[in-house]
């Protein structure tokens, strides 16, 4: 997945919306580049390059640059070491199925608890690329689908350069500041946060107030949860909020508001938010 050159068409189905994009993955030794090109409005080009994602909207000329994206792939985030997750996920093989006219092996990934969603992944039997991914809620209903409709593995592909002559006024930077050391955090997570481990900690500008927002990223290998902490405001909406597959839970702790957000069940974001304590 990381060392091959491949390109194809991918359909993303999420939150009741379907979007189809051209996907390209280029690898040269240890350098990777991933590129998405939309086929439908809003027309945009997305490039993941050296850990940074740049998204350029053709019509509005708006650009979003995320200097520390949460995901590692547009298709699926896979853990580096599957066996390390044996305590929270169970794996089982399904039947052979075809995706994009390629033979694939289905793999079921079922969580052992109620803190994460089950998944099914179709893995190409020749190149071991994920050809299709489905995420289900705890009732077994499909929440999200990513599927190649065609894919070709090739010997070489060219890297593309992100347009440098962009209008600065149209660029929105996310996570512009360098990642901080975890030791700088003045709050702690209670008891490993139900199987989620720390990935990074940073302070970011939201543009809403002058004050920085602490952003702590957690992951269980497949799913990520962001924890945000900022000085509480009068209009804070407490409790659960849901946007499609993303759940969040906000509570007030001392003078701060803590929000946990992720593609995980409500129970997970609630427990993670409740588990934050101050040092």
């Amino acid at each position: 997945m990381k060392t091959l050159n491949y390109q194809g068409t991918v359909a993303f189905f999420k939150n009741g919306r379907l979007d189809t994009m051209k996907h390209t993955h280029v690898a040269d030794q240890k350098i990777e580049q991933e590129r998405l090109l939309s086929l439908n409005s809003p027309m945009r080009e997305v490039i993941r390059d050296a850990g940074t994602i740049s998204c350029i909207f053709n019509k509005s000329k708006k650009v979003i640059v995320n200097h520390r994206p949460v995901s590692r792939s547009f298709i699926v985030d896979l853990p580096i070491d599957f066996s390390a997750l044996n305590t929270i996920y169970r794996y089982s093989l399904g039947e052979e199925e075809f995706v994009a006219m390629r033979s694939s092996q289905t793999v079921f990934i079922k969580p052992v608890d109620q803190y994460r969603y089950p998944r099914k992944i179709w893995i190409d039997r020749e190149y071991f690329l994920p050809l299709k991914v489905e995420v289900y809620n705890l009732a077994g209903e499909t929440l999200e689908q990513v599927v190649y409709t065609d894919i070709q593995v090739v010997d070489t592909l060219k890297f593309v350069k992100v347009e440098k002559n962009l209008d600065d006024t149209n660029i929105t930077h996310i996570h512009l500041q360098e990642t901080d050391a975890l030791e700088k955090m003045d709050f702690i997570l209670d008891e490993q946060a139900i199987g989620f481990h720390l990935v990074f900690f940073t302070r970011m500008d939201t543009g809403i107030s002058d004050k920085k927002v602490d952003h702590l990223l957690l992951s269980d290998g497949f799913s990520s949860v962001s924890v945000y902490r900022e000085v509480k405001s009068d209009d804070t909406q407490l409790g659960v909020q849901t946007l499609g597959t993303v759940n969040s839970f906000t509570r007030i702790a001392e003078d701060y508001q803590i929000t946990a957000m992720g593609d995980v069940p409500v129970k997970a974001v609630e427990e993670i938010a409740q588990g934050i304590a101050f040092q």
Partner: peptide
């Protein structure tokens, strides 16, 4: 800051 939805959708 968290989701890839802005890129894929």
């Amino acid at each position: 800051a968290h989701s890839d939805d802005i890129y894929t959708h």
